[in-house]
Design a binder for these strands. Structure first.
Lengths: 187, 187
DNA sequence: GTAGACTGATTGATCAGTCAATCATGACGA
DNA sequence: TCGTCATGATTGACTGATCAATCAGTCTAC
């Protein structure tokens, strides 16, 4: 519903109708619209976190984990247009909402704490020319940027997600040519 | 005002007060709140476009133009926190507003039409290992992502912008080591 | 019988949009 | 030179709609 109507466009009456209960119950349960939206953000973050850990734990080596992260972030079930519309909706309010900011700060910390060691592990094998932290920060920024562009640009459908994944693989290949082979990646 | 209060938080009465005129004049001049916001977006895009062309035209070679673009997008007067808060506010509504989408599509087209030739020009000199379009797309995504992170993350102040610029320079150096030298870029 | 789950009508606040009234400017004629 | 009028700019009170929050009451399960 947030994806369809935006954060301010969602009304408690809408939520009640969709949930199949009365208005009062929504109001009573969440106390306030702010808290309802915060609960939605928490659910969104948690859903992402679960999917992310699941994919990460499914692989042993750093390169495979990174590839799995690319697949998760760009075109998976938790990063389709609908989900991303919700992320961007919350992003837009973050500068005015300390609760949102806290959630994103913590998510970002956890994210970088998992991403940086992966990059570092590969970097030591390839005699790093650059700070691995910058490489990790760049990859993270790329994901966010590709999410934004999927919302505001002309991206539509799996082909464009495949291109987004190619962009990220090209990025990693540029830094780590040995680890991320030279398959043809033109889309 | 949009940066302070968000798109739905801005009221016509606020605008009138800030502009020092009566409520009715704002209402009469813009006809509708939607059109007022669209005018604000047009002004934002135009301001960016002017700054971008000015910086681009100030240099002759592609590498210098690219460096100027990095400086413009990450930490200049048209990309401070206030401006970026407005961009993200409009981004969040784009999936629901065809006018916004049209503006961003056109801006993106113009942006890539300028960016891709720069990358291509450098790529031919360095025997490209990857499609230059992917490299350009990655840089554009990085800019957007760093904007998002400046809003939602813990970025604050010039030091973090310097780090963001380092990320982009590291990106370009990874693809084009000859053109983008190997200065120490650790922040 | 009672506690807790649940309902939805009501209230009060906010806000976009409307419109009748006012004001400023300048043209025109005496 | 001065008064008069017309036009367009500008005002802000008012209207109607929307919506979060409240609360008095109903239902259900045990």
């Amino acid at each position: 519903m947030i994806a369809r109507k935006g954060l301010p466009g969602v009304t408690l009456a809408d939520v009640a109708r969709e949930a199949g209960c009365g208005y009062g119950l929504v109001s009573f349960h969440f106390e306030t619209k702010d808290r309802l939206l915060l609960a939605a953000l928490d659910a969104l973050v948690e859903e992402y976190r679960v999917a992310w850990h699941a994919r990460s734990d499914a692989h042993a080596d750093a390169a495979a984990k990174l590839k799995a992260l690319i697949d998760l972030d760009l075109g998976s079930g938790v990063t389709d247009d609908r989900h991303i519309a919700v992320w961007t909706a919350f992003w837009a309010e973050t500068s005015r909402n300390a609760d949102y900011k806290a959630r994103f700060s913590e998510l970002n910390r956890a994210y970088m704490a998992r991403l940086e060691p992966l990059i570092a592990a590969i970097a030591v094998e390839e005699t790093p020319p650059t700070d691995y932290r910058l490489i990790a920060g760049g990859l993270s920024a790329m994901f966010d940027g590709l999410w934004v562009e999927s919302q505001i640009g002309d991206m539509r459908g799996e082909r464009d997600w495949a291109r987004a994944r190619s962009i990220c693989r090209a990025y990693l290949r540029a830094f780590f040519p040995k680890t991320f082979g030279a398959e043809a990646d033109r889309v």
